[in-house]
Simulated scan of single mutants.
Amino acid sequence: MKEELDGLARNYPDRFQIYYVLNQPPEAWSGGVGFVSKEMIQTHLPAPAPDIQILRCGPPPMNKAMAAHLDSLEYAPQMQFQF
Results as ranks from 00 to 15, higher is better:
1 M>T: 12
2 K>L: 14
3 E>V: 14
3 E>F: 12
4 E>V: 15
4 E>N: 13
5 L>N: 00
5 L>T: 04
5 L>W: 02
6 D>T: 12
7 G>M: 13
7 G>V: 08
9 A>L: 08
9 A>T: 10
12 Y>Q: 13
12 Y>F: 14
12 Y>C: 05
14 D>S: 10
15 R>L: 15
15 R>V: 06
16 F>G: 08
16 F>W: 11
16 F>M: 05
17 Q>M: 13
17 Q>I: 12
17 Q>K: 11
18 I>N: 13
18 I>F: 13
18 I>A: 10
18 I>L: 11
19 Y>H: 15
20 Y>T: 09
20 Y>N: 14
20 Y>L: 12
21 V>T: 09
22 L>G: 04
22 L>A: 05
23 N>D: 08
23 N>P: 06
24 Q>G: 03
24 Q>V: 06
24 Q>T: 09
24 Q>H: 10
25 P>V: 02
25 P>M: 08
26 P>W: 07
26 P>R: 15
27 E>R: 09
27 E>M: 11
28 A>Y: 01
29 W>T: 02
29 W>M: 03
30 S>L: 11
31 G>K: 06
31 G>R: 06
32 G>I: 02
32 G>S: 03
33 V>G: 00
33 V>T: 13
34 G>H: 05
34 G>S: 00
35 F>Y: 13
35 F>H: 13
35 F>V: 10
36 V>D: 06
36 V>T: 08
36 V>I: 15
36 V>E: 01
37 S>L: 11
37 S>R: 08
37 S>G: 10
38 K>D: 15
38 K>H: 09
39 E>L: 12
39 E>Y: 08
39 E>K: 15
40 M>K: 14
40 M>N: 11
41 I>M: 13
41 I>A: 14
41 I>V: 15
41 I>S: 09
42 Q>I: 10
44 H>E: 08
45 L>K: 03
47 A>Y: 03
48 P>Y: 02
49 A>E: 09
49 A>G: 12
52 I>W: 01
53 Q>H: 14
54 I>H: 05
54 I>E: 02
54 I>Y: 00
55 L>R: 08
55 L>K: 07
55 L>G: 11
55 L>W: 14
55 L>D: 00
55 L>F: 15
56 R>P: 01
56 R>S: 02
57 C>L: 09
57 C>A: 10
57 C>K: 14
60 P>M: 11
60 P>N: 11
60 P>C: 04
60 P>T: 09
62 M>V: 04
62 M>T: 03
62 M>I: 00
62 M>E: 04
63 N>I: 00
63 N>A: 07
65 A>E: 00
66 M>T: 10
66 M>A: 05
67 A>L: 01
68 A>F: 03
68 A>P: 01
69 H>K: 03
69 H>I: 00
69 H>Q: 00
70 L>F: 04
70 L>E: 03
70 L>D: 05
72 S>H: 07
72 S>G: 01
73 L>Y: 04
75 Y>K: 06
77 P>E: 14
77 P>H: 04
78 Q>I: 04
78 Q>N: 12
79 M>Q: 10
81 F>E: 03
81 F>R: 12
82 Q>C: 08
82 Q>I: 09
83 F>E: 15
83 F>S: 15
83 F>I: 07
